[in-house]
Amino acid sequence: MSSFIPKTISGISQTVERTVFSAEHARFPGLLQGTDPRAKLAMVILLLLAASTARHLVVVIGVYLVSLLFARLSLLPSSVLLKGVWLGMPLFAAIVALPTVFTMPGRALLTVGTLGDMQIAVSDNGLSSAILLVVRAGTSVSLGLLLVLTTRWTDLLKSLRILHVPDAFIVVFGMTYRYLFLLLHAVNGLFLARASRTVGPIEGREQRRWIASTTGVLVNKSFKMSEDVYQAMVSRGFTGEIKTLAEFRMADRDWLLLGLVVVFVASTMLLDRGLA
């Protein structure tokens, strides 16, 4: 446990800094980066709808391939989308899907044992349902990543207004983003300060005690920090409404792209129904 927690927090901190806060990928001159955030949000929601309502694997794979195409045209490194999604996510999705493999009626593909008179086997329907669930989850996460990586955080927040998300929610969301950045640094600092004063192994009980006290310190710090950040915003004229310079204008290209996605999503839904 001694190195697991600090390494994890440090990893999260570096990843968040590099991607979200620096808007590293949102600055690339790619397709989605140059698309109006509102059009982009609508496109991603439509594609998510297509992926989550499809009942056939081939349709979901089609949506996933479109997300990869968008990633390619947006100059995103393939590792960001592929590794970021498929290295960790399938494990969690598979855990959720596991019972389906054995409980869904169908032709037995592999018998793993018996329980009394009952045969425990992997069914064909169960397996295909589980695969569908994992691919659907991967596709959804990929689409979410596409949106987050190619859009500056402030623009993304502002674009939520097309969904009639209340201003108060957007403000709270924005503040959370600000605190997260500073708190991650504070956590890293605490772990580093402790590591610099630690010689040799520490007992698990002592570790747990330290983690508990650190959590308390962080809560206090977060209160102080939240007040300071808010005051720093108020001091520069903030009254509760997010104002950014990006003036969204739906260009012809944005309408065209949105139209293409609408046609694609409608086609996938028709295809899915046809396959049924």
Partner: peptide, 25 residues
């Protein structure tokens, strides 16, 4: 007001955004 801790004052994605925050508000 310029705060003692610059980190609480610089919360945007870029320096330009942070400097533009006040005029925009």
């Amino acid at each position: 007001l310029v705060f003692q801790d610059s980190d609480v004052q610089l919360f945007s994605a870029t320096v330009w955004d942070d400097v533009a925050f006040g005029p925009l508000q």
